[in-house]
Every structure is written in structure tokens, then in C-alpha cells.
Design a binder for these strands. Sequence first.
DNA 1: TCGAAGTAATTGACATATCAAGTAAAGAGC
DNA 2: GCTCTTTACTTGATATGTCAATTACTTCGA
Lengths: 163, 163
Amino acid sequence: MKPDPSPVRREIQQGRPFRSPADEAAVALMRTTDLLRTALSGIVEPAGITLQQYNVLRILRGSSPEPLPTLEIAHRMIEHAPGITRLLDRLEAKQLVRRQRCREDRRQVHCWITPAGLELLERLEEPVHGEVQRGFARLSVADDQRLLALLDLLRAGIRDDPM
Amino acid sequence: MKPDPSPVRREIQQGRPFRSPADEAAVALMRTTDLLRTALSGIVEPAGITLQQYNVLRILRGSSPEPLPTLEIAHRMIEHAPGITRLLDRLEAKQLVRRQRCREDRRQVHCWITPAGLELLERLEEPVHGEVQRGFARLSVADDQRLLALLDLLRAGIRDDPM
DNA sequence: TCGAAGTAATTGACATATCAAGTAAAGAGC
DNA sequence: GCTCTTTACTTGATATGTCAATTACTTCGA
């Protein structure tokens, strides 16, 4: 009797087994994140911002009332974002952030979150948190921490592999 | 003495702690996947295709020599892809897939991978597998399986939460 | 203090993604 | 066989992402 293919293999209807557990975990990782992103986008986008824009607002709230220079925001983002300037253009157009060229170093542009931005974040806080809680409902707190530890290891491995 | 902030918190320079372990794991998940995607894109894109296109080619190789209808490919993709038609347009332009309207059901369009597509996949096979192995080098096989199990649980939770 | 090198951010050209509407064919019900 | 619904895409409009080149400013080093 054939062994049951794993959940990931069933989901993507892959006939052959994966070449290694790491390959299977890599696919599972991307699928899972895609699902999570889709779920969170579904909460954040009705409010008129993308998940990345939401992330930028949270970063700016974190430093507020201090401003952050543009590229510092890019560095702190969850997902690598080369289009940071235009992303900020859009947030500024929606009046959710304010920008001003820095006086001490005139190459930099400082960004702040506006009161409207703070208010929007506040409105989204509970729904986003709730969605994450529901998504993770089947994992215990210990599971969350195991997952976290594995992901930390993985990031360390990906980063210092010579690409 | 202050407790050391977790790796994720240090990476995104977040001052305040996360609201729950699940929230922190969600951020870690997105960061980790972004890193992995970037690393894999770095291997696949020099060959002239995106990671999503690579994924489509692998799906078509999986079913080859049988063709797959367009939307069936979309269903099997790792990452949800509404732009499947144009994605296939690009692969067809590169002569990596071939399409033909289905005779039995003329609404469907059948897609095959071409010999050039198969050859490209073969060239990328080792580098991609190698990159995954190196990235996962710090995790044991048992770790890979733990990670996989946690991700399977998580996907199940995200899917049947009423969004 | 002058030029070379480095940084911070912007811009332009182009590729890709997203969403809503449209088209064509198949199937279901009478 | 004739409408109605559903399915399987396709298309157009628009937003967003990506990469390379450019501008403006600072810093470093002789």
C-alpha cells in the first residue's frame, strides 16, 4: 500500500516525492507565507493600504515622534523593498506620512507618521492581531516558539551562505 | 538587566515587544520567506525566468507528457497567481511552453512544457537544490520535519478561519 | 581646499501584478 | 432546441515593483 503523500505534496498535486526534507520545507514555507499574506492583505487593503504600506506605518509608529530617514525604513522592513521612495510617495499622497529634507544632512529625507496614519493603524490593530491569532489557533505557545526558533536558524543559514 | 530582544525584533529594530508569540512568528515567517525567495530568485533569474515562472515549469514537467489546462496550473502553484494567462504568455514567448486550445472542451487551453523548457529546468535543478541545502544547513532532518509539521498546522488554521 | 569616492534618495524606462469586465463554450433545466 | 448559469479563460485599465542611471550632498585624503 502506497504511503500517503504529505500535505504539501497533496496541495500542489505533486506526484513525485521531494528530493529532501529541506526542499519540502522550503515549498511549505512559501505556500504558508503566501496564505498568511493573502489573509492579512484581506484585512488591511479594504482600509486603502497594502501590506507593505501597513508595515511602513508600523515602523514609523515605532520610532515616533522621532522621524526616520528613507533608507532606514527600507532596512527595517519585513520584506525587502527597493521601491521605498514611491511607496512613501503614495503614503504621503494619502496624508498618512509627512516628509522633510533633513537640515543636518541634506541628502537625507526624514519621514514621520501623521495623526491620520496613527489613527488608521489603531483601527487596524485589533483585526490584524485577531486574524493572526485565529490563523495560529492550532499552535500552542510552545509551538509558536519552536517555529520561531527554527525560522531564526533558517534565516541565519540563508544569510551567510555565499549565494 | 534588560532581557535580550529576540532575533526578529533586533532585525527589524523594533523597540517594543510583540503582542503575542503568534504575532512574532508571523513576522518571522514573512521575513524568512522573503530571504529565501530572494536567494532562489538570484539563482533562477540569471537564466531569464522569475521564481513563479520556474514554479510553473516544474508543475508542467510534473504532468508531462500530459498537458494541463491553464487554471489547473494556477491551482497547483505555490504562490497564488491571478495573472496566470500573461505569465504563460511570457513563457510561451520564450519558447519554454506550448499552448493549444483543447478539442474536447474548447473553453480550455492546454499547456505543455517544451524540450527547451525541460532542458532549462535540468540546468537549474542542482543550483536550486544546492541553495536550499545550504540555507537549511543549520537544521537537522528532524528539524526540517518539525518545521514542516508546524507549517502544515498553520496552513490548516489559516485556511479554515472565516477570514 | 580640491578632487575623488561614497551616500541618500530620486527618476525614468520597463516588467509584472491586480482587478473588473468581457467573451466564448459547456452544461442544466424545461 | 432555447434560455440560464457556470466555467475557463482573456483583455484593458491601472497600480505596483524593479533596475539602472542621475542628482545632490557629504566625507575622506593628499
